[in-house]
Structures are given as C-alpha cells and as structure tokens.
Design a binder for these strands. Structure first.
Lengths: 191, 191
DNA sequence: GATTGACCAAAAATGAATTATAGTCAGAAA
DNA sequence: TTTCTGACTATAATTCATTTTTGGTCAATC
C-alpha cells in the first residue's frame, strides 16, 4: 500500500505549528518533517494559510468532541454549562496549538494566529448558543437573546477563570461555579 | 507674582501626552511647549515616568469627579451603577489622554501606557467596590465579595458596551441597561 | 500521473552608521 | 544665593543597504 502523503503533511504541520507557531513554521520545515518534497504539500493545499486552516479545523473538531463528552443530557443547564466551560478552558490551556497561538498573538500579533483563535472562540459561542436556546425552550431559562447570552456567559467565565488571575490569587474551581451561579443564575437582587 | 513654572510644565506635558502618547512625547518637546528650560522639569519631577504619573493621577481624579457627579444618593444601586458606568466609559472614550493610551498599547504596547490604563481601571474598580459594599450593607444586594462583584460588573459592562461591537452591531444604551439588569440583578433562572 | 527539489521574486532579518532622547551640571540670570 | 537654563553625554532608537530566508513554481524525475 502506498504511503498516505497527505496525512504525513498534516501531521507534520500540526506538530510544527504547535511547536513553533504560525510564523516560525516554514514550508521547507514541514516538508522535511513529513519526509516529503516541498512541492507535494502544494498538491494538497494551495498555500500556507489553507494548510493552517485545516489544522485549526481539526482543533475545533477535537474541542467539540471534548465538550460533547462532558455534556450530560440528563443534567441541568447550568451544571452542564459550568462543566463544559471548565473543560473547554482546560482543553485550550493544555492543547499545545491553542497555547502557542495565544502566545504568538500576545508577543508578535501574527494576524493569522489571531484569526485562528477567533475562529476557536466563535465555535465555542455557537456551541453555547445552541445549549442556551434548548434551555429556553425547555423553560429552564428566562426568555433572552441566545447569542448575547452565550457571549455574556463566556465573557463572565473567562473573567472569573482567567482575567481575575492577572491581579489576584486564582479562584478555586468550586468558587467559580458558585459565583457563576450567583451572578448569572440567581441574580444579585435581594428579595 | 512669579510665573508658576510647575503648572506650565504639567499643562504642557498633559497636552503632549494626550496628543502624541507616552513614547512620542519628548522632554525637549515638553520644555519647549512649557517655555521652560529642560532642566527645570527635573527640579519638579525625577524623570519622565513621574511626570506621566502626575498627569495620570489628574485624569483619575477628574474621572472620579465625573462619576460622583453622576451618582444620585437617593436612587437605587443598579440605577446608579448603570448610569455611572455609562458615564465613565463615555468619559474614557472622549478623553484624549485615555484614548491615546489605549491606542498606544494596542499599536506598540508601550509598558508605561499599559500601566497607566491599569491604574485607571483599578480606580474604577475601587469606586464600584465601595458602592457595592454600601448596597450590601443597605440590604439592596445579596451578601457577596464586593471585590469580585465589582470586577464582574465592570467586565460584564465592558463586554456589552465595547467587546460586543467587535463582531456585531453596537447595542443601544437602553438595551445594555436592560441586559445588565437581566443578567446580574434578576438572574436567568426561571422561577 | 505523482513527486520532487533547484530556482525565483518577494519578504524578512541583520547590523553598521546615523539620529534622537533622557537625564546632568557648570554657569547665567534673577 | 537661589532659580533656571540649554549645551553636553551616554545610551537607546531608527535607518537603510546588504544579506538571508521564505512561500510558491515548474521542468525534470520516478
């Protein structure tokens, strides 16, 4: 059986983007790592950007599987949301590619890396939005715009789970759950 | 009466930092604008950083006055919070110095400009935190950590009022008020 | 027909020479 | 004496011509 050169290219690219980032990954390097002539890459992908898009798509798919695996159809909306968000942030924090992209954006602002992260965030928002809509339909949540609500939920979670740390001790996972419920679910108003 | 050279320096510096940013403001320029020898600046301020700190302190003071002017002791907490936050963001958006610092951080990441903006945010957070504590004491809000709560309120407001715009049409001021109340005050849970 | 790597134009990195800048201080002005 | 100044210096930033690297191509090879 012939060797699957496309797979070789994709795996080499994934490794290289994860290890060195978008800018520092060269097509020569990917070709060498894949044990393939450089021209071969261009029979599968029109250019570097499309190769990168394919790798990002895999990351997004993988994240969706991880999220879906954490989701419990029998559980409550907030319990699920909390667990899924926690799992997604943890995934993003540990996945080499996602980490590298975030660093590259922070350090040198590579536009393609930023675009990749934005696509990742969009995927997360779509996922939450669908769950919010379902919860509204089931009567578990008040009527509200699912898109804005998903956006607010992600922002609030990010604020508590990662932005807070830039100036304070990190909050415990249980503390985040509790705060998330207090602020968004029950509300702050007395009576 | 002798001319107040310190005031001249401070006013020239404020003008220059607002117009050109931190990095592009030179001490020679400030001296010339202030009609003062360069050495004179150094009799009042040890270095460029301290001069900038003085200007930022004025901005923070000014913002506090603006916030306090918007605050109505007879009104409800959320009504006040909403109006004060709106006023503060508007102030920040229109004040040359604040705008210039934000651009400088985005474009070239000047550390001192970032530090300035962080100090501005800290001042806002302290202000909200005090009002939150008062509202808890009055029984208007549930018991909660005032520091985390102030942080969440600001983040939520920023998310709705400015981050949302990066990918969508801006939300109306009344819409923001309504969402802010729905999410944080009343909560999303049904029943 | 699939694969390759030498090749090319264009972009990026380098670094030596030049310019600009923060901060000093000897002396002028008040 | 005291206050103020701008020429001066060491260092940092900027240019820009030169070199190196890179994404992408395509005639030759398998």
């Amino acid at each position: 059986m012939a060797i699957d050169r496309r797979k070789q290219v994709v795996e080499a690219a994934a490794q290289s983007f994860s290890l060195f980032g978008y800018k520092a990954t060269t097509m020569d390097q990917v070709a060498k790592l894949a044990n393939v002539g450089k021209g071969t890459i261009y029979t599968f992908f029109d250019n570097k950007e499309e190769l990168f898009d394919e790798i990002m798509n895999s990351l997004i798919q993988e994240m969706k599987r991880v999220a879906e695996a954490e989701y419990d159809p029998a559980g409550s909306f907030f319990d699920n949301l909390n667990r899924v968000l926690g799992r997604i942030l943890d995934f993003r924090e540990k996945h080499q590619l996602a980490v590298k992209m975030a660093h590259e954006v922070r350090d040198i602002g590579t536009p393609k890396a930023l675009e990749g992260l934005n696509r990742l965030e969009s995927a997360i928002l779509s996922y939450i939005q669908i769950k919010v809509q379902a919860a509204i339909d089931k009567g578990e949540l008040k009527r509200c715009d699912p898109e804005v609500t998903a956006f607010v939920m992600l922002k609030l979670y990010l604020a508590l789970a990662s932005e807070w740390q830039t100036a304070h001790d990190p909050l415990e996972k249980e503390k985040i759950t509790e705060l998330f419920q207090l602020y968004l679910l029950r509300g702050l108003a007395n009576e």
